[in-house]
């Protein structure tokens, strides 16, 4: 079972390395969204600090969303998804491997680039640390939840837009607690532990339940 996980993970990472534009698009999308906000709203330090958590998190939501469309679509188009659905291995393991690969390629880079956002928005080192931590806990949830939407919209025209309509509402709790943690950390004497614990709990829940939903959605989409 672990071999299957490793093989599918390796497969998706290799594919991404041979077609780098897909990953770079997400990455630069995030960087650009973060960078144009100060141009639009002005460079007032206090205001930027206040807006930073929300903007960084919304940019992360959108970036993870645009990458989702390709999660299963290319496998669907060339028939490899059919082969996975009929393989002798549990579909849930395959789904988990694909989602993990997706997160490594689109979620993790956002965590690593977060300090850049911190610089632009005058955040202190501690606040950047909290932002990275919440993104580290939160972006896997985005990938896991998003996979359900990506599976449900397979084979539909305009699937990309539909994913956003289906999945963005589900992202709301993650946005609230993720951005909330960073905002709270800016107040003196505050404690963000509760936010992090809640995000962690969300992550565990998503890890257990979403692969089943995604697998079921893939079976429906293949009909």
């Amino acid at each position: 079972m672990f071999t299957v996980f490793k093989t599918i993970l390796g497969r998706d990472l290799t594919l991404a390395m041979r077609r780098k534009t897909d990953i770079l698009t997400t990455f630069f999308f995030f960087v650009i969204v973060i960078s144009i906000f100060p141009l639009g709203v002005g460079f007032d330090k206090a205001m930027l600090q206040k807006m930073a958590p929300g903007i960084a998190w919304i940019a992360a939501l959108l970036a993870s969303m645009i990458a989702l469309e390709r999660l299963f679509a290319s496998d669907y188009e060339d028939g490899t998804l059919e082969q996975m659905l009929l393989s002798h291995q549990p579909l849930i393991i395959i789904v988990l491997a694909k989602v993990f690969a997706h997160w490594l390629l689109t979620g993790l880079p956002l965590v690593l680039i977060a300090p850049l956002a911190g610089l632009q928005y005058h955040l202190s080192g501690d606040e950047v640390g909290i932002m990275m931590l919440t993104l580290l806990l939160g972006t896997p949830i985005l990938s896991l939840l998003g996979a359900i939407g990506a599976a449900l919209t397979l084979g539909l025209r305009g699937g990309g837009v539909l994913i956003s309509v289906l999945i963005l509402p589900l992202y709301v709790p993650i946005l609230i607690y993720g951005a909330g943690a960073v905002s709270t950390s800016m107040e003196a004497g505050s404690n963000v532990q509760a936010y992090l614990l809640l995000l962690g709990a969300f992550l565990i829940l998503a890890l257990f339940f979403t692969p089943w939903a995604t697998a079921a959605a893939l079976r429906i989409a293949s009909e």
């Binding site: 071999t3 599918i8 497969r11 290799t14 594919l15 490899t80 059919e82 393989s87």
Partner: peptide, 19 residues
């Protein structure tokens, strides 16, 4: 059911593991 960016050998290896 082949990935275009992978070689025939890689495709075959993945199919074997999956099954």
């Amino acid at each position: 059911g082949l990935k275009g960016d992978l070689t025939a050998l890689e495709n075959l290896r993945i199919a074997s593991v999956l099954n």
